[in-house]
Design a protein around this nucleic acid. Structure first.
Length: 287
DNA sequence: CTGATTTGACCATT
DNA sequence: AATGGTCAAATCAG
């Protein structure tokens, strides 16, 4: 949170940054090569675990690249890790919809400028990398999609499906990060759900405040608002099969630490992989 | 028919 | 001028 003076974070010179980006790109390519080589491992369990690790390395590198590419805000707004990671996903200008102006009348007072409240206070947001962006138990409605500069994939904008009925301010921005087999998405959640507290507990609890640790979530969303623009075929398949599994997602903080620490422990990954392989064998489970 | 998604336009910010 | 976020009419799907 604490806003530090800019001088304290002295951004690297742009040529140096370019070099860093280049290095990270190389790293991402190498991770991709590694992934392909890992495909050759005969042992299923080890292969899957290694592939998963390689995917995460790749995702982390790609994220880092986009962070650096859209660094203007990163260095000018807040040194907080969350702010930095948000800048990665939502580089640059805070836009504001036009709306009323077009129809000529209704001048709405949407104050969404750079994720700030009406009085400029920081709005709560949380960035995660996940293979299953739809997987948060809430009902989202898509309201826009935008091609982002320097991004391969478009960014999709969602708001809570109950935003009208319950004035729920929750929003979600989803951007695909890579084209890996399970593609990785950067999901930015903004504002807590106020609607969830209005519903009986068969919905997900208002989990937006959960910490970095227990972030496994249940793939059991009511509507597939997230199907079209984002990893279409795969998500469709999954939801058609009515699957319900627990999958990991990673906060940005975790990813940051992954760069210097080993990834998930082999045991953890084996467990993940077990789930996943069960998944692919019973590709019709659920109900 | 109703509700959700797509898509181009609009607008604030940088 | 460029960019990102949002709106809303058009379109799609159940």
């Amino acid at each position: 949170m604490a806003m530090r003076p800019k001088s304290e974070m002295s951004p690297p010179p742009s040529d140096q940054r370019t070099a860093v980006i280049e290095e990270l790109r190389k790293g991402a390519q190498l991770a991709e090569c590694l992934r392909q080589q890992l495909e050759l491992i005969p042992e299923l369990g080890r292969r899957n675990a290694a592939l998963a690790n390689a995917s995460n390395i790749s995702a982390a590198l790609v994220s880092s690249v986009s962070m650096l590419q859209s660094d203007r805000e990163q260095y000018s707004c807040s040194s907080d890790a969350r702010a930095a990671s948000y800048a990665a996903g939502a580089s640059g200008a805070g836009g504001r919809g036009g709306s009323g102006a077009r129809s000529g009348a209704i001048a709405r007072t949407r104050k969404a400028r750079h994720r700030q409240g009406i009085h400029g206070e920081e709005l709560p947001f949380k960035v995660t990398l996940t293979e299953t962006p739809e997987n948060d138990g809430f009902h989202w409605r898509k309201y826009g999609e935008k091609k982002i500069l320097n991004a391969v994939f478009p960014r999709s904008y969602y708001r809570c499906g109950y935003s009208d009925e319950h004035r729920c301010p929750a929003k979600k921005v989803v951007q695909q990060q890579n084209n890996n087999d399970p593609p990785v998405f950067m999901v930015t959640l903004m504002n807590d759900h106020t609607c969830s507290s209005l519903f009986p507990a068969n919905d997900q609890p208002p989990s937006s405040s959960n910490s970095a640790t227990a972030n496994s979530q249940v793939l059991d969303f009511t509507k597939a608002s997230l199907s079209s623009a984002v990893g279409v075929s795969r998500l469709k398949k999954e939801e058609d099969a009515g699957m319900s599994v627990t999958v990991p997602s990673y906060t940005y903080d975790e990813l940051a630490s992954y760069s210097s620490l080993p990834l998930l422990s082999p045991k953890e990954w084996e467990m993940e992989m077990e789930i996943k392989s069960l998944f692919s064998h019973h590709s019709g489970g659920g109900t």
